[in-house]
Design a protein around this nucleic acid. Structure first.
Lengths: 214, 214
DNA sequence: TTTCCTTGGAGAGCGCCACTATCTCATCAG
DNA sequence: CTGATGAGATAGTGGCGCTCTCCAAGGAAA
C-alpha cells in the first residue's frame, strides 16, 4: 500500500507518518520506483504501536525510538531483549539531591525487597531504573509528610507481584518471539493506564460503599 | 518567612515561586508592607504538593490549579470534595472516534463492572473520567490485537480493589478533613508511580524466576 | 503526448507549556 | 544616603510533537 492508504487505514496524517519515518520510528517502505514506496501490514502494525506509545503511554519520540530499537534487535535473547526495551521507557526524573528523604526512601525500599524475598530485584537494584523510580516516588511521599515504611508498602508489592504473574501467564500465550517482546512493551505501556483507571474506579467504589455519595 | 527563605527551604527558585503565585497555584503571602509579604508553613506545604503534582505526577499547571481549587473548597462535603479534586486530574485523551474498538471496549468494561458488582462505578459510568480512561486504554489494547475480555480483566480489578481498601484504611489515619483530601490527591498522584515501579520490579523478578537472567 | 495530481523527501515554522531573565519601582537596613 | 532586596509584570527561552511548504520526479488521465 502507498503512504496515502497507510495514512487512511491508520488514521494518522501523511505529514505525521513522514515525520515518524524521518525520526526512525517507522522503517522505510520498499521502494518500487523513484517516487513511490510500498508499505505492508507490518508497517501498519508498527505504526499503531508507535501511536500507542506516544499518545496513550506519553512516551517521548526519542524514547520510543530507543524502545523500538531494542524490540527489533534480534541479536538479543528474549529476556534481555524485552528487558532492554522496558528499561528504555521513560520514568520519573532523577532525584535532584541525595537528601534525607531520598536516603530514608532508599533504606525503606531495600528493606521492602528483603522482606519480600525479591532477590533478583535486590541484585539489580543499583542498575534498575524501576528501583530508582520507586525510591524517588517514596521520597516524595516522605517529603510530603506521609510516613510509608516497608511494612505499609509490602502488601501493595505483593499485589503487584500477583499482577505480574498474570502478565507473564498472558504473555506466554503468544507464539512468536517478536510478538512476545512487543506484547511485553505494549502491556507495560497500556497496562499502566488500565491499572490506574481501575485503581481510581475501585477507590470511588470503596469510598461510596464506606461513606455513601454525599 | 520571606520569599527567599521559602525558596531556600523548598528548593524551588524564587522565579518559579513567583510564577506559581501568578498562576494561582500558591495563595499570596500575608502582606506586611508595600514590598514584603510573609509566608508560613502552609505555603511551604502547598508548594511541596504543587511540585509533586507537576514534577512527579506530570500534571499540567492549569489542571493543578483546578485540582487545588477543589481541595480548598470548604463548601463541599468530604467525599464530594475529594472526588471533585480527583476527577480534575488529567487522563488519557478522548477517543477520536467511536470506532469498533471503542464500542467493544465499552461493552467489555461494562460487563466487567457488572461481574465485579461495582454498582456505584456502574451508576457513575457515563460521568466518570476514570471509566472513560479505562475504555480508551482497553480500546487501544484491542486495536493492537490483544483480546482482553472481562474475564481477563477481572482479576486485575479485584487486586486494584484490594489496593483501594488499603488506601482508604491509610487515609482514615489522618485527623483533619483538609489533610484527608490532600492525602487523597497525593496518594492518587504518587501512588501511581509507586505501583508502576513495583509492577515492573515484580515483572523483572517473576521473569527472572521463570526464565533466569539470560 | 500533454496535463495535472501525487509521491517521497527535507527544511522551516507553529503552538503549547513550564519555566526564566529582565526590568521597574518601592522599600528598608546599615 | 546607599545598596541590597522584595514584589510585580512582561517578554523571552527551550523542548517537543507535529504541520506547512516547497521541490523535483513520477505516474495516471485525457
Amino acid at each position: 500500500m502507498r503512504l496515502a492508504e497507510l495514512s487512511e487505514r491508520s488514521g494518522v496524517s501523511t505529514a505525521t507518518i513522514k515525520y515518524y519515518l524521518r525520526e526512525g520510528l517507522l522503517p522505510p517502505g520498499r521502494r518500487i520506483g523513484a517516487t513511490t514506496a510500498d508499505y505492508d501490514d507490518t508497517h501498519l502494525r508498527r505504526l499503531r504501536l508507535v501511536r500507542t506509545l506516544i499518545q496513550v503511554g506519553g512516551v517521548p519520540v526519542a524514547k520510543a525510538r530507543e524502545v523500538l530499537r531494542h524490540v527489533d534487535d534480534e541479536s538479543l535473547g528474549r529476556t534481555i531483549r524485552a528487558g532492554a526495551a522496558l528499561w528504555a521507557l521513560p520514568r520519573l526524573p532523577e532525584p535532584e539531591a541525595e537528601d534525607d528523604a531520598v536516603v530514608t526512601a532508599r533504606a525503606e525500599v531495600d528493606r521492602l525487597l528483603e522482606e519480600l524475598g525479591w532477590s533478583t530485584a535486590r541484585e539489580l537494584a543499583p542498575l534498575s531504573p524501576d528501583h530508582r523510580s520507586l525510591v524517588v516516588a517514596v521520597a516524595s511521599l516522605i517529603r510530603l509528610g506521609y510516613r510509608w515504611d516497608a511494612r505499609l508498602l509490602a502488601p501493595y508489592a505483593r499485589l503487584m507481584h500477583q499482577v505480574a504473574v498474570h502478565d507473564l501467564d498472558n504473555m506466554e500465550e503468544y507464539p512468536s518471539e517478536a510478538e512476545r517482546v512487543e506484547a511485553a512493551v505494549a502491556s507495560a505501556v497500556l497496562f499502566e493506564p488500565v491499572l490506574k483507571a481501575m485503581h481510581r474506579l475501585a477507590q470511588e467504589e470503596e469510598s461510596a460503599r464506606r461513606y455513601g455519595l454525599s
